[in-house]
Design a protein around this nucleic acid. Structure first.
Lengths: 240, 240
DNA sequence: ATCCAAATATTGGCATGCCAATTTAATATT
DNA sequence: AATATTAAATTGGCATGCCAATATTTGGAT
């Protein structure tokens, strides 16, 4: 695996911590103890400790010892980069439906007009996949922008852009362009906009929820026909 | 400051990278170069490199060198980092209440026990501000973790950590420790946990919403007594 | 017996030095 | 001259050893 050793040591230490019943604030075994336990030098353990410290799992105090600070990061490899499309969509469903509800409360006429313009583009200009994709993104992020909350916009943007980092998504996306689920989603978008026009928070939440539910279902069907490639990404099924 | 040296070295290296016009993929100066530059041992620089590697800023290759991987983390002040406490809390209210609702559907007994443990710590151990703050963070993020969705956990973590980058928050936070709003919030937390126990999504959503509403109101009052310092941060008032 | 101070032990901080992987330069081979 | 082979230099990997901060024990004074 050609991985740097301190990472392996760090992961091992995480597991040791998880196995033991250490509580937050408790003192960890010393570097020397782990060094002997794993049969490596203390330097390496120290580096692993630095890793855990950066991950805010422990706190290191000179002359005293190291202390458990946080039990969250224990689950190995919290890498967000290689998260599956379904897990990502699940998160987007939760967050974006809330954003839609929030937007419904404060959306301006200009924002509504902008969304309408985007819908017009989506209706007409289905030429290329990129165009459609870009319009789709515009629609979702414009709603986030309508909340007038930079943090919400930033969060939505971040979630959307996570797709691009994942190779699985491209496969799924390639299949989407063949069929015309765009029509379904266009209808979804219209429903969302309608609720936003009515300034109905719960209606907007529900409409956005349903939209992303439809997207999930569509992707699920697609992945079903291409099952082998998507092994390991199905664990994060919608749980409702 | 009493900060570990490798952190300081790491920050210095970040600045050096920022000053120089290195692009992604470019080779960094060697550990030995930095060691001589800063007048420390290579071990220390190596530790700083590990820090940057954990932060996904660089990639270290044995025998070859270290390479710039990501320039995003360099920006100490991302556009969102200097957002006001109220705008941030508003966003957290929207998102974390949804997360709570989501968690209520799938939370395990272990997760519930863990939350109870955290509450116990919050109840008893109000010694230092850091402890209380750490427990608070643990409570909120543990709920996010209970959703078993890494993206949601990542999002919640990101939102929480935005506080630390903002100087305004520290001022507010300094005032909070004086008074005992902790009791109020502890009660809020208990209510949230109760709804999670009942596995009542809408109850959990409401409880978390109310909790963050209370936090907002508290901060608003505090900032009111210290009005001049918070000019420019009040634009993002709760809009409901 | 209690308390305080000094001695001792423990623990992380850090520098030095040698090893292994890789890259680069030199040299041989065609 | 081009290419393959080999030697040298570069670079990160890691262990050892001593230093400094903290914690613990000891012993004497009251």
């Amino acid at each position: 695996m050609a991985e740097r050793l301190y990472r392996e040591i760090g992961e091992n230490i995480k597991q040791e911590i998880a196995k033991s019943s250490l509580k937050i604030g408790d003192k960890l075994p010393t570097e020397r103890v782990y060094a002997e336990l794993f049969g490596v030098s203390r330097t390496l353990v120290r580096e692993a400790f630095i890793m855990l410290e950066i991950e805010e799992l422990i706190e290191v105090k000179k002359g005293s010892g190291s202390y458990l600070k946080n039990t969250l990061s224990l689950k190995t490899s919290n890498k967000v980069s290689d998260v599956g499309p379904f897990e990502l969509l699940q998160a987007r469903q939760e967050i974006e439906s809330s954003i839609a509800a929030c937007a419904a409360k404060v959306i301006t006429k200009q924002d509504l007009q902008k969304l309408q313009d985007i819908l017009d583009i989506e209706s007409a200009e289905l030429e290329t996949v990129e165009k459609a994709n870009s319009a789709d993104r515009d629609f979702h992020l414009s709603i986030a922008q309508s909340t007038q909350n930079i943090v919400l916009l930033d969060t939505a943007t971040r979630l959307w852009d996570m797709r691009d980092g994942n190779p699985m998504w491209k496969k799924l996306h390639a299949r989407i362009q063949d069929t015309s689920y765009h029509d379904q989603w266009l209808e979804d978008h219209k429903k969302v906009l309608l609720q936003l026009r009515k300034r109905n928070p719960e209606g907007a939440r529900q409409a956005m929820w349903q939209h992303l539910e439809n997207v999930k279902q569509t992707l699920f069907k697609l992945s079903d026909t291409d099952a082998p490639d998507f092994d390991g990404y199905l664990f994060a099924q919608p749980h409702s």
